Amino acid sequence: MNEVSQISEFGKIFIFLIVGFISVGITLFLSKLLSPNKPNPEKLSSYECGEEPVGSAWMPFNTRFYVIALIFLLFDVEMIFIFPWATVYANKELIAADSRWGVFTLIEMFIFAGILILGLVYVWRKGDLEWIKPKPITPQVNTSIPMLLYNKLNEQQQAFKVKGFSLQNEVAVVSKTAVTPTTNVIAKKPMFKPSFKKPAADE
């Protein structure tokens, strides 16, 4: 007589997780209890592949590492989805149940991989995969303003020339200001006087 299992599949997974947590906790507790604790400057120093650590650990980090890591993570997740698909794609039982199964799953995977490839092409064309960035391109804007007005404005700006700095001129200006007597500065009156209206009495 076949006995019915009292534990469901989810119960087995739950027991497996509990045993895993308990085993990891016991291992960490025993290592803390039995391992010697004798810290010294050599042990507390950061490890750099056997090299002596130089400088501070707080240093600027190139953000392009994150871009490459995100692209790798994207295609790593793609592989996670493709492997189980490849195991059931040509399953004879599924194809015998419905002949459209093979064509449907093939088209679905082509769409999934095509979207990711389009993203890779976009990142590639944008230049994010190049470690040495190309020279920035100045954007060109189409406008209805004629170029003559821009040239005229530039000519007007060139008429105002900036005087070159000279230490002798600065000393002369300072000496003149020191000789001239101080004058009383008259405070200017405000151009307008704010007026506040009293709120109307409630009727």
Score class of each variant (00 low, 15 high):
Leu129Ser: 03
Ile15Cys: 06
Ser56Trp: 06
Gly127His: 09
Gly164Ser: 08
Ser31Leu: 11
Ser8Met: 04
Val77Pro: 00
Glu155Ile: 01
Val162Ala: 04
Ser46Thr: 08
Glu78Val: 02
Asn169Val: 11
Phe16Leu: 13
Val77Phe: 06
Thr63Met: 07
Leu116Trp: 05
Arg125Thr: 02
Leu44Ser: 11
Phe72Leu: 02
Thr183Glu: 08
Val88Phe: 13
Ile13Thr: 02
Phe29Ile: 11
Ala90Gln: 13
Val162Gly: 03
Glu9Asn: 07
Ile13Asn: 01
Phe16Trp: 09
Lys135Thr: 10
Phe61Met: 01
Ser144Leu: 10
Leu73Arg: 00
Lys43Trp: 14
Glu203Phe: 02
Lys133His: 06
Thr183Asp: 05
Leu118Asn: 07
Leu34His: 07
Pro134Tyr: 06
Gly20Val: 12
Lys197Val: 12
Met191Trp: 14
Ala69Asp: 01
Pro41Val: 11
Phe81Trp: 13
Phe192Val: 14
Phe160Lys: 02
Leu44His: 10
Met79Asn: 07
Phe165Pro: 08
Glu42Gly: 08
Glu48Asn: 08
Val123Thr: 06
Trp131Ala: 00
Val4Lys: 09
Leu17Glu: 01
Ser23Arg: 08
Thr177Arg: 14
Gly11Cys: 05
Glu93Gln: 15
Glu93Ala: 15
Met59Lys: 15
Thr182Asn: 14
Val24Gln: 13
Ile95Gly: 03
Glu108Asp: 13
Val67Leu: 02
Tyr89Phe: 14
Val77Thr: 08
Phe81Tyr: 13
Asp202Glu: 12
Leu148Ala: 08
Thr183Ile: 14
Ile22Asp: 07
Lys38Val: 10
Ser23His: 05
Leu116Arg: 01
Ser31Tyr: 09
Lys163Gln: 07
Lys43Gln: 06
Gly119Pro: 05
Ser46Arg: 09
Leu33Phe: 15
Asn184Asp: 09
Val185Glu: 02
